[in-house]
Each structure stands twice: as C-alpha cells, then as structure tokens.
Nucleic acid binder design. Structure first.
Length: 453
RNA sequence: GGCCGGGUGGCAGAGUGGUCAUGCAGGGGACUGCAAAUCCCCGUACAGCGGUUCGAUUCCGCUCUCGGCCUCCA
C-alpha cells in the first residue's frame, strides 16, 4: 500500500511520491525557545516522529526541525528575568529536548539554530531585494506580497480578503498593508547583526526559508507544523522561498496538525490555559502522554483531559501485560493492518484499534509459540508509533527495586500457603495489605503475578 | 465580518452509500474460595430540516452549534 498524505495545498489526500525515489526531505517548524514547552507544543514533534518512523521503513529520510533562538518574545523574556539571551535560549532548548526525549521523540537529523544561519538569511534577503521582491525602508526590509501571484494559495485566502480583515499591521513604511518584515533594525540593547541594511535582526518567517534552503535545497518533499502556522507563517515562507528560487515550490506536501484544546479552547500561552509538558509528566507516565497525543487523528483537534490520560495508561497496562505474559519478546515485523492504518494519512486511532486486536490475539493464543508470535507483532507494530518500546516488567512492576520485588514475592508465597491451607481470611489479608500499598495481585494459570497500580 | 475544520452511542474516537470500528464506563456470563486479570455476550450512535438515491450517518443544500485562522502562537 502506498503512503497517502493529506496535502494542505490541495486539501485532499494524495499518494506520496518523493521528488527523488527512496529519499525524503522533511522540515517541521520547531520551537521558539523562550519558555517551557506546553503539551500543545509537543503534538507536532510526536506526530511527525511517527511519520518519520513510518517513512524510514523504505526511505532515507532527512528530517530537519529548527530551533528559533532569535525572536522578540525571547528578548522580552530575557529582559524580564534579567538574564542574558543566550542563557535563556540554551536553557530552554535543553528543556525542550529533554521533554521530547521523555516522550520518546527521536531527535531530528538536524536541529539548526537561527543564530547559526544569519549569513544565510542575509543572503536570501539579498536575493529577494535584487530580484525586486523586497524593498528597504529605513533599515527595514519588507517582502512585497504583490510580486508573488500565488500568495494565499496555501492558506486559501486572497489578498483582498486579508485587507478587508483590516487587522493587518499598517506601518508607515509599508508599501502595502500585507507586506511583511524580512529584516528589522535593532537598537543597542537588542541582538543584532551587521547587514547591508544596517545592524538588525531577521523577521519571523525568513529563518525557516533560509534554513530549508541551506540544509535541504529549494524544494523539499514535506513541510509540517501546527495548523496555526498555516497563515501567515507558512504562507510567507512559500512566498519568500518561491520568489528566491525562480518560482520553485518550497514544499510539495504540506501537513498541518490540529490544535490541542483544554475545555474546548485552544491551549495557548496567551490564553494561559496551558499545561507544560513537565506538568503533565508529573502526573502520568510519559508513554501515556504520548499515547494520548496519538489517540486522535493528527488533523483533528484534541481535547486534553485527565480522564483521557487515565485511559491511555489503562491501554498501556493491557498491552504491557500481554507482552509480559508472552515472556521475552522476540523480534517481529509490524502487522500489515497497523502499517496500512498509518499509511492512510497517519490514521493513528485506527492503528491503536489494531493494537488492541493484536493484544487480544496474545491473550487468546492457543499455545506459547503463537502467543509469542502475536506478542512480537504487537511490539513491532507499536514501535511504529513509538509505543511499547519499554520493558514490560518495568512498566508493570516499576524499576529495579529488588528489595520490593523480593518482599512481594515472599508475601505471594505466604498467601499461596494460606490458600493451600484454605485459610482464605489470611490470604485475603495479605492481598489487601499489598493493595493498600498499590500492589495488585493477579492469579493466573501459571501462578500469581503482581503489578503496581 | 471573511476563510477553514468539526458536530458519531454515558465518555473518548475511527469509518463507511446497503450485516462489524475500537477503547473506557455500564449490564450479563465463564474462570476463581473471593478478587484482579483474561475470555464470551449485550447498546434501534451518527446535530436538525430538506434533497439526490431502490437505499444516507456517509453525497448535495440550508439551519443550528463548537473550534481554528485573519495579531504572537505548535
């Protein structure tokens, strides 16, 4: 089955064909590092991590996710905290990478920083100025939107509509209200770099165009990001890059993930209704958080709730228990049904339903051999989603607390003896005591096993 | 106001022009000394109103409603 992707450019599903067979270039907009990432910020990395895992089965993937470390919000945050900008951005980048690692997001192949690409940005702007797509006014360089006929194609809006919207910033130096900044002057207290237009810093959108151009070339296969970036960010990227590259399209497939919501509203810094990834990791296992983020289709909105988190944990309990019962998992191949679900525009809910079916096969297997085969398929299938890669015993019984394990085993033995003697009051007392400490016993055909609640 | 995307059983959440999602919760049963786990069975769900059709939750139109973007945003 071929991979099918919903392309924002055409608003329909299309069969994915990379520009060069067997090779895929992917760019996803990364974080602006001024504050701890919230759960909504984690959705694109998790979603596109699954895409990369899927693509890597038969493609050589080059995945770039930038770090934006030049931005006015960064400047403001650093000023507020009274720390150097560099300290803030490095600290925040560290937090971001740690949080993503906790969510089992594999690092991208390249994670370029804007500060390392100022020269590329200046060169790109120069190309736009010299070809008449950008103009300089008082140290500002602006992109002249009217020079790009296809402007609005990605986000599906016309310039007329946007002007009618009248919320576009109308700065006196702009030739037209929809023109946007490529370069702006910096005062002495603001980070800046020397340029043909004086000391200044890049505008918001140009960085991505410059880094894509530098690392991946003029046309990439897939560009991803949050739906809220579709306009103006991605629209402006398209305009800049196309105009700087003789009309070559920036990306052939655009993918946008839906917003994470809290109580029906978009989770966002400005609304203040956000949970940082750290907040959430404090109350649920990281893998449950990852599962929750994959429990709705990536293009749909996803309402975050503690109940959803609890359900995700329950599902993992069931799956890990299946793996645990099957013994040491052998290497396996993913189940075709899971692959097919993911190849259908990353239908993770369907894939998760298949995982439940595979777990059922483990539980109903007639013999050890078929049970292990089913478990191997479950594990390999889940790995495409970045799930069930941990040790089942660790998930169910916790870390290497040998003392606890020995103690529980001793209690289980004592209970077994009481049961043999038909002293059920004593047996139940032992079980109840353990339950009070969060240890649950499960009597199976092969003896009694235990797990943490 | 303009543009875009949703409204599916108690909840979460896929999908389809004509017997099935799936998970959680709930009910019944099996197993068990009892639990837990697991297995089996169980729900006239597709916002409303029209239309197309032999047949629509699925296609079309309208209405209501929720959210996103249009300003920083993943």
């Amino acid at each position: 089955m071929p991979l099918v992707i919903h392309n924002t450019l055409t608003r329909r599903k299309e069969e994915f064909q990379p520009l060069s067979p067997g090779r895929v270039s992917l760019y996803v907009c990364g974080p602006t590092v001024y504050d701890l990432p919230h759960l909504g910020n984690a959705r694109p990395p998790v979603v596109f991590d699954v895409l990369v895992r899927l693509l890597q089965r038969d493609h050589e993937v080059t995945y770039v996710r930038n770090i934006t470390d030049v931005d006015d919000k960064i400047n403001a945050a650093a000023r507020e905290r009274g720390i150097p900008i560099r300290v803030l951005t490095e600290e925040t980048e560290r937090y971001y990478l740690d949080d993503m690692a906790a969510l089992n997001v594999r690092p991208p192949h390249l994670a370029p920083r804007v500060t390392d690409h100022i020269a590329d940005i200046i060169r790109l702007i120069n190309r736009l100025v010299s070809t008449g797509h950008a103009y300089e006014v008082d140290g500002h360089v602006l992109f002249e939107v009217s020079t790009f006929a296809a402007y609005g194609a990605l986000s599906g809006r016309s310039i007329d509509e946007m002007i009618a919207g009248a919320r576009v910033e109308v700065a006196p130096y702009k030739r037209a209200p929809q023109d946007f900044v490529l370069w702006k002057p910096s005062d002495d207290d603001t980070p800046g770099w020397d340029s043909p237009w004086g000391r200044g810093r890049p505008g918001w959108h140009i960085e991505c165009s410059a880094m894509i151009d530098h690392h991946l070339g003029s046309t990439i296969d897939i560009h991803g990001g949050g739906a809220d970036l579709q306009f103006p960010h991605h629209e402006n990227e398209v305009a800049q890059s196309s105009c700087a590259n003789h009309g070559h399209p920036l990306a052939r497939y655009w993918m946008h993930n839906g917003m994470l919501k809290v109580n029906g509203e978009k989770m966002s810094k400005s609304l203040g209704n956000f949970f940082t990834v750290r907040d959430v990791l404090a109350k649920a296992p990281a893998e449950a958080v990852r599962l929750l983020l994959l429990s709705a289709h990536y293009r749909m909105e996803l309402d975050f709730s503690d109940d959803g988190l609890a359900q995700a944990k329950q599902a993992l309990d069931r799956w890990y228990r299946a793996l645990d019962q099957a013994g040491a998992p052998a290497a396996g191949a993913p189940d075709p049904s899971v692959v097919a679900a993911l190849e259908d525009d990353l239908n993770t809910p369907e894939a998760l339903a298949r995982l439940h079916a595979l777990a059922g096969e483990v539980y109903t297997a007639p013999d050890d051999a078929s049970r292990q085969a089913a478990a191997a398929r479950l594990r390999a299938s889940a790995a495409l989603l970045g799930l069930l890669e941990g040790d089942p015993a660790h998930w169910l019984r916790g870390g290497e607390d040998a003392g606890l394990a020995a103690e529980v085993e001793a209690a289980i033995a004592a209970r077994m003896a009481a049961r043999k003697a038909r002293n059920f009051a004593e047996a139940d007392r032992i079980r109840t005591d353990l339950a009070a400490r969060g240890i649950l016993l499960e009597d199976g055909a092969g003896g009694t096993t235990w797990r943490k609640a």
